[in-house]
Amino acid sequence: MPQQSKAPALMELDGFQFTPWPKTARLFRDIVITEKLDGTNAAIHVSEDGRVAAQSRNRLITPEHDNYGFARWVADNAADLAYILGPGLHFGEFWGQGIARKYGQETKRFSLFNTERWYKTGDDGLDSMATRAGDTLLGIDGIIGAVPVLYSGVFDETEIRQQLYYLQVGGSKAAPGFMNPEGICIFHTQTRSVMKVTLDANDAGKWEAVA
């Protein structure tokens, strides 16, 4: 018995919506490699009218319901933080004394992630935080800054491996002399995405072949 052919489906467009394929980003664009700090993720909110609030990775926090004292530090320095940072949501890592790896620190520090805004290289070749407050922040030098920039330039896998090697043998750039850094973060400027590679077992064997 001959098989009956199926009638072709009618091209009915009602109820469908065109969805384009997203633009494909180019891999070989600029990246920024920074040291990944092992502390606690935190952020400072600064409103247009100068009000300040703090958050952890998962929630807004207050000095009464805090996370490693970050909300208390933000509250104590609210006016200076509003002036230095300006309106917006400012993400960073709160690290040091009593948090995760501790880095041999006797104080806690806040390092901002947005190196495009906060990092600069001076005429002397030294990197420092760019801020309207001058060289000393909040009157306590070094308490707030930016995560260390290890490389800035076109995507280069060899450079990524090299920076991991430098961290492993030379120790932390954020806390010189601390020989157990966590790893790196790679910010891809075209996709505005961040990826990480760590020196622990999660990434073991994936980066160790360094020329």
Rank of each mutant, 00 (worst) to 15 (best):
Ala53Pro: 02
Trp207Lys: 10
Val210Tyr: 03
Asp200Phe: 00
Val147Glu: 14
Asn180Gln: 06
Gly15His: 12
Asp200Ile: 01
Arg117Ala: 11
Leu199Arg: 08
Ile61Gly: 01
Met11Asn: 10
Ile184Trp: 01
Ser152Leu: 04
Thr19Ile: 12
Glu64Gln: 12
Glu48Phe: 08
Gly205Ser: 01
Trp21Ala: 12
Gly98Lys: 00
Asn114Asp: 15
Cys185Lys: 05
Asp38Pro: 05
Glu157Gly: 13
Phe28Thr: 10
Lys173Thr: 13
Trp118Gln: 15
Asp141Val: 08
Lys120Asp: 14
Phe113Asp: 14
Asp66Tyr: 03
Ile33Tyr: 00
Glu106Ala: 03
Trp95Asp: 13
Thr34Ile: 06
Gly104Cys: 06
Tyr68Asp: 12
Ala209Thr: 10
Gly142Trp: 03
Lys36Ser: 05
Val149Arg: 06
Gly134Thr: 12
Gly170Ile: 02
Cys185Ser: 06
Met195Ile: 07
Gln162Pro: 00
Leu126Thr: 13
Glu35Met: 02
Trp118Leu: 12
Ala100Trp: 00
Ile144Gln: 07
Ser56Cys: 05
Ser56Ile: 08
Ser128Pro: 04
Phe16Asn: 11
Gln190Cys: 03
Ala211Glu: 15
Ala146Lys: 06
Arg57Glu: 07
Ala54Arg: 09
Leu150Phe: 05
Pro181Gln: 09
Val149Lys: 02
Ser111Phe: 03
Ala42Pro: 09
Ile33Leu: 04
His65Pro: 00
Thr191Val: 05
Leu10Gln: 10
Thr191Asp: 02
Asp124Met: 02
Asp30Ile: 07
Ala25Ser: 12
Thr189Glu: 10
Ala100Tyr: 00
Phe187Cys: 01
Ala25Trp: 09
Leu112Gln: 01
Trp207Leu: 04
Thr198Lys: 05
Asp127Ala: 15
Met129Thr: 14
Gly153Thr: 11
Phe16Gly: 06
Tyr165His: 15
Lys6Thr: 09
Ile84Val: 12
Gln168Leu: 14
Arg72Leu: 12
Thr131Cys: 14
Thr115Asn: 10
Gln168Asp: 10
Thr121Leu: 07
Val154Asp: 05
Leu37Cys: 11
Val147Phe: 03
Asp80Ser: 11
His45Trp: 15
Val74His: 02
Trp73Lys: 02
Asp156Cys: 02
Ala53Ser: 13
Ile144Thr: 10
Gly15Gln: 10
Asp203Met: 08
Tyr165Glu: 01
Glu48Thr: 13
His188Tyr: 06
Asn202Trp: 07
Asp30Tyr: 11
Val169Thr: 15
Asp30Val: 05
Asp124Cys: 13
Thr62Ile: 06
His45Asn: 14
Arg57Pro: 15
Thr34Lys: 07
Asp203Lys: 01
Ala75Ser: 14
Val74Pro: 01
Gly92Met: 02
